[in-house]
Amino acid sequence: MKIMTCPVNGPRPLQEFVYGGDLTEMPCPDQATDEQWAAYVFERDGAPGLHKEWWYHAPSGVWFIAERDTGTDEICRTYLYND
């Protein structure tokens, strides 16, 4: 089992974390076309490589961002959303 470093709680077993999907910034709902909006809601890039992802440390309720290489499954960096 992998170990992931929560920015608040430090290294913890992966079992304690919940994956929250790719980090995708919401376009302005009023300005986005229907196509742009649908792309935001449904389309994610699945190509192996460095992804920014939402992760949640369930026991403590901490959301953070992990930069993970989905080709090698290496977690390169974790930090809070606002950092």
Binding site: G20, M26, G61, W63, Y81
Partner: peptide, 20 residues
Amino acid sequence: IVREMKRWAIIWGLEVTIID
């Protein structure tokens, strides 16, 4: 739902606390 609430609270930067 608690999880999603906490995430949106962070994204929106609102002054809100979610207590489960």
